[in-house]
Amino acid sequence: MRRKDTTTDRKSGCVLRELEELLLSKFYDGECSFFERWQVRSLLKKKRAAGEFLEVLGEGSRQYGELLSSRVEERVPEEGRWEEVVRRIEEEERASQFLGNRVLDADGRGEESVFWRFFHLPTLLSREFMGAFACSAIVIVGAQASLPYLFRGDQSIDAQQFVDTQAGEVRRVQQQVPQRQVAEVRRTPELQPSSIVPVDLVSSVPISGRVGAPLTSENFDSNSFDALFSPAPNPSFSSLRRAPASVYRGSRPQRITAQREVQAPVEVDWIRSDGRVRMLGNSLTGAPTLFVKKRVLMRREASQVGKVSSPGSSSARSNPSGIVLQERTLPAAAFAK
């Protein structure tokens, strides 16, 4: 019934919706953006109730303002006002020594330009702006995800050029250094320049106990470089290690840190215990071993209770503070030899 009345009233412009009332309230408080003010103006033209609502707001505001000012007067007596003001000034001066001078900007809002009104915080937090922001974010993320595919052709061309450039440089180096000079440099390591280092031997390092065969220029296959790091056939997990690979450049070995991710003997997703849990031994080798210790506080308390309790009583007790204490969980007979 009420719904029907509301509908008819809406048509005649006598009843405002909640959103319209909120909009008018914002308008009265001077918080409307440009678009919202335009909405209010059109609402005032369409509905008579909108103007009445604004009048009611003004009336209520005046009454509330009077009430508030009377309460303030009651709270601060006339003779104490000046002292209050002086005290406040002194406080502000002291604060300005540390924080700098503060600028009063409370009433500046009324003189804001249309631009700043459009972009002030309530407007930015409005649903329209949030929706627009979300849409923009989705579009940007989607576009970024598509970028590699959009420019895939150009990238491949660039990559080819890069490879060609690199190859050209390599060729240039080979042309600049004659074979005789390379041989001389190889014979005398102290003459080796920092930029050109002839590689005599590349050797794989034992991984998981396997000794790698030395690679020379004769048996080196660039297509099977992964074989350098391939594990031994049928490795056991306990034998896997993090193994560095070494490359011998000339006569001086240099270690490069090519580390392989090795699966640990135990991986814990989560762990929960009434005691303290720690891992025993080397966590990377052998059987996983956990050790649970009772919490120290619990044991101390238990020993104190043990002094006053009689033997043969129940295994769990409460101390005066209400904490449940536990005694040994296995009878001593279980450990008898």
């Binding site: 929960r272 071993t289 956990l290």
Partner: peptide, 18 residues
């Protein structure tokens, strides 16, 4: 002990309690 863990099948899992 209340835990979910993954370990090597060939190796035993040892859990001690003091």
């Amino acid at each position: 002990l209340d835990s979910r863990l993954h370990f090597t099948a060939q190796e035993p899992l040892l859990t001690g309690f003091e």
